[in-house]
Design a protein around this nucleic acid. Sequence first.
DNA 1: GCCAACGTTGGC
DNA 2: GCCAACGTTGGC
Length: 153
Amino acid sequence: MAYWLLKSEPTVYSLADLQRDGETLWDGVRNYQARNYLQAMQIDDQAFFYHSNTQPPGAVGLMQVVATQVVDPTQFRVDSPYFDAKATEEHPRWWTVKLKFLECFPQMVTLDQLKQTFTDTELAVVRRGNRLSVMPVPDPVAQQILSMAQVRA
DNA sequence: GCCAACGTTGGC
DNA sequence: GCCAACGTTGGC
């Protein structure tokens, strides 16, 4: 079982939204490196929900992968901001995963805490200027984040 | 609101 | 295929 970190701006889609919905399709990712990570995800992998563009930013909860290799439907919708004219039903360009809510951390693990604890090779999100919205988290790093969040690992 | 980082686009 | 211009992300 692997761990990941997924960013979302809470004004767009927050952990509270996921808690309400139960599960969600993580659609709209339009970056090839992020897509490749999404394609590498396996059922039962877990992902940290990271709130970006907030004060403070940080990891706020945990999700679980419940469906993999899902074709992102927004690429075909002309009225969607994620529409991609080069994608066809026969040859889609963008895949994603479905995630379910697992838990909301008793306390947020802030970016500041993450920066104090990990190097940018251990955890890419702490690298200055990093814009990648989907990234792997090595298992020992994930265990440590869980303990910082006061969640039993 | 500013701007660093960096991916994408398009002219050549 | 190079690279300047541009657009976006996201911390500060």
